[in-house]
């Protein structure tokens, strides 16, 4: 009798413990919901007033109380695409170097160095961008690009240093650790037998990487790149500090621009009217939805890639 009761007590303890854990864990999906709900509620005035025009007009005039986010969306998307164009190949090759080429000892140290790129705070990248990167771009890189590739509209106009190109480069640096570490995981999960099979067919070292590793891992790499994109879209401080903060839609990469996150960071202090605050919050809501979609997409790809091969 006694023994049975005791056992029941044990089960009670387990049940309370489980409910405690579950309760605290359920706070997280709730938090996610609350974030969306509060942003929606706080930005309701502008959603109500401007509707879809908010997304598709370019006119951002806090004095005249007219708000359209198009120029900032352009800045966000273009700077992120530059970041991907520079950062993705570098990261994928770096990941290949770490998994396929480097000895495990070298890979340990080298991998640590790449990971440390992620540890540098955004604001420090911004500081470096203003005082180190931008002068280099202004004095050396942009005049050179203008001279050699100036026939393209991308590389026309006066070299400011700060601008879309600077933002893209800083973002590229910041997403390298993300894309590299995810690609590394993807490459690691490619079965060794694939590499051996390619080698047995007489493939050279690079051909092994191309046929066995890159091709098998392509879905996962895509996922890694999209994850990097998600990170670039929402990055704030470093971009705010180097993009020049002028809401232009210009074909030239040298010209200053403004992104969705940088306009929030820049105008929070001077936003006095309720509509202006609501407009900034609505930008936050758009960013939230955008990154949510992009990251869900990336997750599907990475998940599929790791599910397809390693039967874990």
């Amino acid at each position: 009798m006694k023994i049975i009761r005791k056992r029941r007590d044990i089960h009670h303890g387990d049940r309370y413990f489980y409910f405690l854990l579950k309760g605290l864990a359920s706070g997280l999906p709730l938090l996610l919901f609350l974030i969306a709900a509060f942003l929606l509620k706080a930005s309701w005035p502008t959603i109500n007033e401007f509707g879809a025009a908010f997304l598709f007009t370019q006119d951002w005039d806090p004095v005249g109380e007219h708000f359209g986010v198009l120029a900032f969306a352009f800045g966000t998307i273009v700077s992120s695409l530059i970041a991907i164009a520079i950062g993705a190949p570098l990261s994928i090759f770096t990941a290949l170097f770490l998994t396929e080429l480097a000895s495990s000892r070298v890979a340990k140290v080298a991998g640590f160095l790449v990971e440390m790129l992620a540890a540098i705070p955004s604001v420090v990248y911004g500081l470096w961008g203003i005082f180190v990167l931008a002068p280099i771009l202004r004095i050396h890189v942009e005049p050179f690009l203008g001279k050699t590739l100036g026939f393209l509209p991308l590389f026309q106009g006066p070299p400011y240093g700060v601008g879309m190109l600077a933002a893209g480069i800083v973002l590229a640096i910041m997403i390298i650790p993300t894309i590299t570490s995810v690609s590394r995981e993807v490459f690691r999960s490619v079965p060794q037998s694939y590499r051996e099979a390619a080698m047995a067919l007489g493939a050279t070292r690079w051909e092994v990487m191309r046929i066995a590793v890159l091709k098998t891992g392509s879905t996962g790499i895509l996922g890694a790149v999209i994850l990097g994109l998600g990170r670039a879209l929402g990055e704030t401080m470093a971009v705010t500090m180097v993009i020049g903060n002028r809401a232009d839609i210009s074909a030239s990469l040298f010209s200053p621009a403004q992104t969705m996150s940088s306009v929030i960071a820049n105008e929070y202090a001077e936003a006095t009217s309720a509509t202006h605050v609501a407009a900034l919050l609505e930008i936050g809501l758009v960013l939230f939805l955008l990154t949510f979609i992009v990251n869900s997409l990336a997750r599907v790809f990475v998940w599929r890639a790791s599910l397809g091969r390693s039967a874990r």
Partner: peptide
Amino acid sequence: VDMLASIPSIVIGLF
């Protein structure tokens, strides 16, 4: 957890 990790930190600030 994954989604919260990927939300830009400035959006958390706005929230």
